[in-house]
């Protein structure tokens, strides 16, 4: 079945097909679909596609593979004496280096760092920084210390937080500093620096990183908010805003370049 002309609603037809629309959205779509041959054809095509896939028997893991993988898992298990998380980590890196998986230590470390960013624990951090950002946008909640002067903002954190957050003014780059506030992310007090871009607010959350590993900026979009997370100078940094992704990337690269 060839769909003659593109219709931007076909992705919604697909979403309904996949059970991803709520009742109201589905009702709206229904009205459109009744008069759109493209979307009617799309619905048919989706059904045909699914018939192809759903007939495939699910492939389970052959017993031999399962046994080998579980044996490999046992070999990689930590020695009972090493219980704290960090020594567990380092012993694991060690065993990776001697494993036969063809991973260099560098690759393993890079992968480990990448993974640390991707874990669900971190996803909830993403949600927490977005929540912190949204909360702060409520009237009167944005800054604890409203100031465009980094030399006012930075000392304000003294005694309020157990580290000195990196405060930079990016007014020359079009991201003037607006102030700072305390926030609470991931079970610890963190510094939030507020920057402005046109009418948009960019929150930059900062707290000490758990390890010395660096991390290049990782982009995430969630509910219309853009998030860039990176680790530099032993500091976890999260920039959150509703500015366009390229603006946020510019903010982060300007911030990184700024002394």
């Amino acid at each position: 079945m060839i769909v003659p002309e593109p219709c931007e609603m076909v992705l919604l037809v697909q979403a309904e097909f996949d059970g991803e629309l709520d009742a109201a959205q589905a009702a709206t779509l229904q009205v459109h679909r009744a008069q759109c041959p493209v979307c009617q054809a799309a619905a048919l095509e989706l059904t045909q596609a699914r018939e192809l896939f759903r007939e495939l028997p699910y492939r389970t893991t052959p017993d031999a593979v399962r046994e080998r993988v579980l044996a490999g898992l046992d070999a990689a298990r930590p020695k009972p004496a090493l219980s704290p998380a960090m020594s567990l980590l380092s012993s694991r890196f060690h065993s990776w280096r001697h494993s036969t998986m063809g991973f260099g230590l560098g690759a393993a470390c890079a992968a480990a760092v990448a993974f640390l960013v991707l874990s669900p624990a971190e996803q909830s951090l993403t949600e927490q920084v977005i929540a912190g950002h949204v909360r702060a946008l409520q009237p009167g909640h944005l800054e604890d210390v409203p100031s465009t002067d980094q030399h006012t903002v930075k000392p304000w954190f003294d005694g309020r937080i157990d580290f000195a957050p990196p405060v930079k003014d990016l007014a020359p780059n079009g991201f003037p500093l607006q102030g700072g506030r305390l926030d609470y992310i991931g079970g610890r007090p963190v510094a939030a620096l507020i920057y402005q871009r046109d009418k948009h607010i960019i929150d930059l959350f900062a707290w000490p990183a758990a390890s010395g590993l660096k991390l290049a900026p990782e982009f995430t979009e969630r509910n219309g908010y853009n998030v860039l997370h990176w680790v530099d100078n032993n500091t976890e940094l999260w920039a959150v805003s509703d500015v366009a992704p390229d603006q946020l990337h510019k903010f982060v690269s300007d911030w990184e370049r700024s002394p």
């Binding site: 893991t61 593979v65 080998r68 993988v69 490999g72 898992l73 990689a76 298990r77 567990l88 980590l89 694991r92 065993s95 990776w96 494993s99 998986m101 063809g102 991973f103 992968a111 480990a112 993974f115 640390l116 874990s119």
Partner: peptide, 14 residues
Amino acid sequence: EDVLQDAIVRALTY
């Protein structure tokens, strides 16, 4: 299988 083995060991680590 190599990837699965690698992933399972990483999963144990994390």
